[in-house]
Simulated scan of single mutants.
Amino acid sequence: MRALVSVCLLSGLVVLGGCGLFKGGDSNYPTQEGTGPTNPNPTGERQTIFGEDGITLFGGGDNAAQGGGGGIGVNSFLWRASLDTISFMPLASADPFGGVIITDWYQDPKAPGERFKVTVYIMDKRLRADGVKVAVFRQKSDPKTGWVDAPTDLSTGPKIENAILVRARQLRINSDEAGDTNKK
């Protein structure tokens, strides 16, 4: 019985110590002074867990006019051009906030016995030549072991990158022309 009372007292002291009844150290908690219904944010700064730009889903400020996102975390022209360029391959994953597009394995009917997989990385919010990177993976069919990794031509990735950039420039020009006709 005495041990039970001792355990309860010790537990109570630990709980009270955690509540701050005993001031053993400095408190790093923010105070609520100067805030309330009439003055919810005394500094006037926007406070959000999403950062100073916030989250934009359907539109955007200055960035949208430059193709900088309009709700996605990467350049919208590069994003759309990437999807257009690899549209013949089945998509496995597409992350517009992180800027990663991963295709599933694609087997060209003209080349039986080999298949390809592509990963596109969009690395900038601006339309730049170094804003896109493509990784190409190739496998060959082996009757004994199944699909086996095979080397790809080193020029394949840059060729796809160039095709994406050409398409992105076309999309940018078309959007500028559409904007000009709407102003007239």
Score class of each variant (00 low, 15 high):
Gly71Met: 04
Ser87Cys: 10
Thr85Lys: 03
Ile55Cys: 04
Ile86Gly: 02
Gly54Leu: 01
Ile55Gln: 04
Gly113Met: 09
Tyr106Trp: 14
Thr56Ser: 10
Pro90Thr: 02
Arg115Thr: 07
Gly54Tyr: 06
Met89Phe: 15
Asn63Asp: 13
Gly73Trp: 14
Asn63Tyr: 09
Val100Asn: 11
Val100Thr: 15
Thr56Met: 00
Pro109Thr: 13
Arg115Lys: 15
Ser93Val: 01
Leu91Ala: 05
Asp84Leu: 12
Val100Ser: 03
Trp79Pro: 00
Gly61Asn: 12
Leu57Val: 11
Met89Thr: 03
Gly69Ala: 12
Asn63His: 04
Thr56Val: 14
Ser93Lys: 15
Phe88Thr: 12
Gly70Glu: 15
Ile102Pro: 00
Ala92Asn: 14
Tyr106Thr: 09
Leu78Phe: 11
Ile55Val: 14
Phe58Lys: 06
Gly69Thr: 07
Arg115Trp: 08
Gly54Pro: 01
Phe77Met: 08
Gly99Ala: 10
Phe97Met: 13
Ala92Phe: 10
Lys110Arg: 14
Arg115Asp: 10
Ser76Trp: 01
Gly73Met: 13
Gly71Asn: 09
Phe77Leu: 06
Ala94Pro: 03
Trp105Asn: 03
Gly68Trp: 11
Asn63Gln: 08
Ser82Val: 01
Arg80Asn: 07
Thr56Trp: 07
Ala81Asp: 02
Asn63Gly: 07
Pro109Gln: 14
Ala111Val: 08
Asp108Asn: 15
Pro96Gly: 08
Gly59Pro: 08
Lys110Thr: 11
Gly67Ile: 00
Phe116Gln: 12
Gly61Trp: 06
Gly60Tyr: 02
Glu114His: 03
Leu57Arg: 06
Asp53Arg: 12
Pro96Tyr: 11
Gly54His: 05
Gly61Gln: 04
Phe58Met: 02
Ile86Phe: 01
Lys117Phe: 03
Arg115Ala: 00
Pro90Cys: 07
Pro90Met: 06
Leu57Ile: 08
Val100Ile: 15
Val100Asp: 03
Arg115His: 07
Gly68Glu: 07
Gly68Tyr: 13
Thr85Glu: 15
Asp108Leu: 05
Asp95Leu: 05
Asp53Trp: 03
Tyr106Cys: 00
Gly61Ala: 07
Leu91Val: 14
Pro90Val: 06
Asp104Trp: 04
Gly60Lys: 06
Asp95Asn: 15
Ile72Asp: 07
Gly70Gln: 12
Asp84Thr: 03
Leu57Ser: 03
Phe77Ala: 06
Met89Trp: 10
Phe116Thr: 02
Val74Gly: 07
Asp108His: 11
Pro96Ile: 09
Asp104Phe: 04
Asp53Phe: 00
Pro109Met: 13
Gly60Glu: 02
Ala64Trp: 05
Gly68Cys: 01
Gly68Ile: 02
Glu114Pro: 04
Asp95Ala: 05
Phe97Asn: 13
Gly113Ser: 10
Pro112Ile: 12
Val100Ala: 00
Arg115Met: 04
Val74Arg: 15
Ala92Ile: 00
Thr85Gly: 06
Leu78Tyr: 14
Pro109Phe: 02
Gly71Gln: 13
Thr56Asp: 11
Asp104Asn: 12
Phe88Arg: 08
Leu91Trp: 06
Gly60Met: 08
Asp108Val: 03
Pro112Cys: 00
Val100Lys: 15
